[in-house]
Write a protein that binds this DNA or RNA. Structure first.
Length: 271
DNA sequence: ATGGTTGCGTAGCAA
């Protein structure tokens, strides 16, 4: 089963690119972030015509996440638990259960972790936006603890807005105080991983300076000035089935590209 | 050079 995550930066502005990628890459499950539209205005017909079922947790103008799947989708969580006042659409979780009983089910989540920048201002070492990000990461860790108790195969995929180490940044010095790189961010990301999750891409690729995001500005893409911030994090039961993982850089080089490119992994049907 | 780009929505914010 091929599972991919992609921050599309508006599903409506990106629709031709998304359709082309689905047709070319043919993921079984696609976890989308920053769809930037409400559920009723998601371009469902075009995507369904390619054989995908759709679950969305949309929001007007900002954020919004979706799950596309060739197999049936059963939504298990809309929004990240732990804060009833949080109205950002950044988390959608579902169980994917193939009709073919030879393929084991897998739980997936599409995650758009808050950016958190600017992380400080002249009066405060931690901005409100950055505080929200750090709290959101702590909520994700708590929720992941509950998921782990089920001993299920699950894949938490998305735009984590975290550079795990300086090797994931084209200019680490320039990003030292960025919300994607600050020590408070990295500590919380490690706490999440240390619950026992496997970063699928890093199970196969150990070189520094491999990226999933390139800013639109200052020629970042042709200069390969990127960041690695999109991840697929696997439970032990999913990691046991992990066959391969990679970054599909092709969509980033096309006209009208998202600033992110898909990260994917393949899982064996079962053990 | 205090710049530069994209999307949403039509001003200014978010990234």
């Amino acid at each position: 089963m091929k599972i991919a995550t992609w921050n599309v930066n508006s599903v409506k502005a990106r629709l031709p690119r998304v359709l082309q990628w689905l047709d070319d890459f043919k993921p079984d499950v696609a976890l989308l972030q920053e769809i930037k539209t409400e559920d009723h205005s998601f371009p469902a017909l075009e995507i369904e015509s390619l054989g995908y079922k759709i679950a969305t947790h949309g929001q007007k103008s900002y954020n919004g996440v979706a799950i596309l799947s060739r197999h049936p989708i059963h939504v298990t969580q809309t929004g990240l638990p732990g804060d009833d006042m949080d109205d950002h659409a950044r988390y959608l979780e579902a169980i994917i259960t193939p009709d073919d009983a030879a393929i084991s089910p897998v739980r997936v989540a599409s995650i758009y972790l808050p950016n958190g920048n600017p992380s400080f201002d002249e009066d405060h070492p931690v901005s409100d936006k950055y505080r929200y990000k750090l709290k959101w990461m702590e909520r994700l860790t708590r929720h992941t603890e509950t998921l782990l108790k089920t001993d299920e195969a699950f894949v938490l995929g998305g735009d984590y807005n975290v550079c795990e180490t300086d090797d994931d940044v084209y200019d680490a010095k320039a990003f030292a105080n960025d919300a994607l790189c600050r020590p408070e961010t990295r500590m919380r990301f490690r706490a999440l991983l240390n619950l026992g999750l496997t970063n699928a891409f890093r199970a196969f690729h150990h070189q520094p300076h491999l990226y999933s995001y390139w800013d639109y500005q200052k020629g970042a893409w042709p200069k390969d000035n990127g960041l690695l911030i999109d991840y697929l994090l696997l439970s032990p039961e999913a990691a046991d089935r992990l066959i391969d993982s990679g970054i599909d850089k092709k969509p980033r080089g096309l006209e009208k590209a998202s600033d992110h490119t898909p990260v994917w992994c393949t899982l064996a049907p079962g053990i």
